[in-house]
Design a protein around this nucleic acid. Structure first.
Lengths: 118, 118
DNA sequence: TGTTCGTTTCCATAAGTCTCGAAATATGCG
DNA sequence: CGCATATTTCGAGACTTATGGAAACGAACA
């Protein structure tokens, strides 16, 4: 994700919706394994068409990614994008003074169930 | 700011707009001194009525505060709210594993121009 | 190849947001 | 009190977003 104002606005907008925020957090917690669209729709209790709309929205914002596994499309969170977003907000905190770490959750953090090490 | 999903969605939505994101960052950098509505409108190059709409939006989301100084209304960023927002996003990063500090920018950070002390 | 399953696209509708001029509302000054 | 200044509220128009049913699409399995 680029860190210009426009793309940040898009990312914030993508997360500023009940279903999408919940969905994104599900993916964050699901790690690299990700979740199939159908499973997400069921978990959220919304029709597939509605889910597809939200998935497209998050994808357009660069926050999630798509991969195919058999008949299913698996969605995963883009950890880099989330870090960039948080980084942007922190970067401008406190008048630019260094008061925050840069990337608390690195790329490697995409395997949430174990301690970050590799 | 409370950290339930609903209020987070509201905060994200408040920031998911070009003018408001810029405005919020201006206030973040302005520190406790804050900025008068008129000065903000001029800086953003938008009519007062439009600005007022955005200020109300950010206020409703709990991200900024209002104080009167003579004829002017001074707006300031709510650092606690921003920390809560970022904290919420980080909290759910990496499947809940501890990978982020809790409040990088403390309450005391509200005087950005000088070293945090009080 | 035909069928099934998972997902997306299309469509319409309902609801919300952004914008800004004009009028209304406060505050302060003389 | 009356006038000037600072900001908000009101109202209307254009635009965007959310929702879900029905149909289309694509991949895989037999």
């Amino acid at each position: 994700m680029e860190t210009n104002t426009e793309s940040i606005v898009e990312a914030l907008g993508a997360l500023a919706q009940e279903n999408r925020l919940t969905l994104f957090r599900m993916l964050i917690q699901a790690g690299n394994a990700g979740l199939a669209a159908g499973a997400i729709a069921q978990a959220l209790g919304i029709p597939n068409s509605s889910l597809s709309f939200h998935l497209a929205h998050l994808t357009r914002a660069g926050l999630i990614r798509q991969r195919r596994d058999g008949r299913s499309l698996i969605y995963t969170a883009d950890y880099e994008a989330m870090n960039a977003l948080v980084g942007f907000l922190m970067e401008n905190c406190c008048g630019g003074a260094a008061c925050a770490p840069e990337a608390p959750c690195g790329e490697d953090a995409a395997q949430p169930q174990r301690k970050v090490s590799a």
